[in-house]
Amino acid sequence: MPPVSETLSCSKCGASIPFEDWNREHAFCALCRAPHSTYVFPALFSKIDQAASAAAIVAEGEASCYYHPRKRAVVPCDQCGRFLCTLCQVEFLGQNWCPGCIDAHKQKGQLANLDSSRPLYDNMALVLATLPAVLVWPTIITAPMSLYVAARNWRKPSSLLPRTKARFYVAVLLAVVEIVGWVWLAAFLIQSLISRG
C-alpha cells in the first residue's frame, strides 16, 4: 500500500496533526494544546488518476467518441444518445451524461444539483412589504413593487432547501392591505375636498 502523503493540520495553530491522532477523539495539538478530533475516510488514500486518458481506436469498425473521433466510445449519453469516451463520460444523478447535455440543462435551469446560488424572491417581496411600513409613506411605492416581485417570481425556483410559499402569501397580503389603505386615504381626501368645495 502506498504511504500516506497527506497531512492534516490543527485549525487553531496550523501545526500538523500526527498520524497517531487520526481517527481518535480528544487528542491534543502538540503545539497549541488545543483539543481536537480528527476523522479520516478511505478517500484520503485513494489515488486520483490524473493522467487518465481514453483508449484510442485500435480496430476498424469500433465506435468513436462524438467529441473525440480518435478515441474509443465506451458508453452512450443517457440524454442525447451520443457516444462518449471515458474522458467525456460524466456520471451524474445515476446516469451517463455528456458535457453538452449538462451545459444545456444548466443553461435552462433544469439541473438544481448544479446551481451554486439562488435568489430568494419571497424574502425580497416580504421585505418590500414590511420594512418600509415603518416610515409609512414609502409603502405607496414599495407595496406595488412587492406585489410585482411576488407575481413575477411566484413560479420561479426558489431555495434548494425545503421552503414553503408562506413568505409570498404574507407579502401579498401585507402589500394588498397597504395599497387598500392608500386607496382609502386618497378617496377620503378627495371626498373631503369635494365636500368642502
Partner: peptide
C-alpha cells in the same frame, strides 16, 4: 470527503 477535523 477525505477528512474532518474538529478543533476546540
Amino acid at each position: 470527503i477525505q477528512a474532518l477535523v474538529l478543533t476546540e
